[in-house]
């Protein structure tokens, strides 16, 4: 049987990560007072340690949905955030396509 692509043991962490784009208090909280945000979502000490380390492998090993790694990276890594966006040169060619 195929391994589920998301693991039930990590749902509380998935909930935290998938809130980032919708709830500014989660996004800001993770940047300014992460421990309080970990409390809010009920992360264990071992789970907090993975996020404190910032190590992608350690965070992945918690069993989070892989796509939610991107929410975390986009929040915490400005270089990646700037890279994963429509290039201004292409944006100019899209002028008038968006509203």
């Amino acid at each position: 049987m195929a391994k589920p692509i998301t693991e039930p043991r990590a749902f509380h962490i998935n909930r935290m990560l998938q809130s980032i784009p919708h709830d500014p208090t989660v996004a800001m909280g993770l940047l300014t007072d992460p421990e309080a945000t970990y409390d809010r979502f009920g992360l264990s000490e071992a789970e907090r340690a993975a996020f404190r380390s910032g190590d992608a492998g350690a965070i992945r090993a918690l069993g989070i949905h892989p796509h939610l790694m991107m929410s975390w990276t986009l929040l915490t890594n400005e270089r990646v955030r700037n890279f994963l966006a429509i290039d201004p040169v292409h944006g100019a060619r899209l002028a008038g396509k968006g509203k």
């Binding site: 998301t6 749902f11 998935n14 909930r15 998938q18 784009p21 919708h22 949905h65 796509h67 939610l68 991107m70 929410s71």
Partner: peptide, 9 residues
């Protein structure tokens, strides 16, 4: 979608 409208919920 990419976890914005439909997610692990």
């Amino acid at each position: 979608d990419h976890m914005l409208n439909f997610n692990t919920q």
